[in-house]
């Protein structure tokens, strides 16, 4: 369900229908809490989440979890280590301005999303960010550097909230399951997370493992972890 705070101007019912028919039916109630998911103090602003630095676990690492729904949740929690990493959420803000650095401080200079998510007139993202990282000046860059649309805001969200968003084409950029995996696997802006340049901490693992996790999560019913789950809590 779209968040009340973030009306979704780009809802596409057609896609939603196609996507949800296959998947939403499989969602288990949130109450079905996976055993072993700890209450590790969910970071309320999503920003202060510091990743463990452990390798990103591939789907195979979850083979021992017999129950599909539990496995699905666990794999999503693992993928959330990427999704809720500062490298990703900093440009998925819930307001109009990106954050920066591992501390997710407000971007300096203050920039705003503008009408298309690519900055204000005269102060576009691309007025500083190139299509690649600049090693000398440390300015990060990747193709089509811009903010995620507001309906794809992840900053400050829990894994569960992001999970729900990802399944909702109105809040995932209108993607069906295949498109979602394709996006996670090949998008150059997503890929930047693993190669952020300068001394920035990359998101864990590699892009393929991450996409595999998303694929496996989808294939196991795209079950969202409970509210209390923190990124990686299941691994």
């Amino acid at each position: 369900m779209p968040s009340a705070r973030h009306p979704s101007p780009r809802r596409r019912p057609g896609l939603l229908g196609r996507f949800s028919k296959d998947l939403l039916a499989l969602i288990v109630p949130a109450a079905a809490v996976v055993a072993g998911v700890g209450l590790l103090g969910c970071a309320p602003n999503g920003a202060k989440h510091l990743d463990s630095g452990e390798p990103l676990q591939p789907p195979s690492a979850f083979a021992a979890v017999a129950d599909d729904a539990e496995r699905s949740q666990a794999m999503f929690a693992e993928a959330a280590r990427v999704l809720l990493h500062p490298r990703c959420v900093n440009c998925h803000p819930s307001d109009d301005s990106p954050r920066q650095l591992d501390s997710s401080r407000m971007h300096v200079p203050r920039v705003t999303r503008g009408t298309k998510g690519d900055g204000a007139a005269g102060l576009r993202c691309a007025s500083c960010h190139q299509s690649e990282n600049l090693s000398f000046t440390r300015v990060p860059g990747a193709p089509h550097w811009q903010l995620a649309p507001i309906e794809m805001a992840w900053f400050g969200k829990t894994p569960r909230e992001v999970c729900e968003q990802l399944k909702d084409p109105a809040r995932n950029g209108g993607r069906d399951a295949d498109a979602l995996v394709e996006h996670m696997r090949t998008d150059p802006l997503v890929a930047w997370g693993w190669d952020p340049g300068a001394d920035r901490a990359p998101v864990p693992g590699d892009q393929n493992t991450f996409a595999d996790l998303i694929r496996a999560w989808l294939d196991t019913g795209a079950v969202c972890p409970p509210d209390t789950t923190t990124p990686g809590a299941a691994s």
């Binding site: 200079p109 203050r110 920039v111 503008g114 204000a120 007139a121 005269g122 102060l123 007025s127 500083c128």
Partner: peptide, 22 residues
């Protein structure tokens, strides 16, 4: 400022804030 005005001929204070914050 010239880039702002080329795109937004009559900017509000808020638009000026957004474009000139850099």
């Amino acid at each position: 400022a010239a880039a702002l005005l080329a795109e937004v001929p009559a900017p509000t204070d808020d638009q000026i804030d957004q474009s000139m914050a850099g």
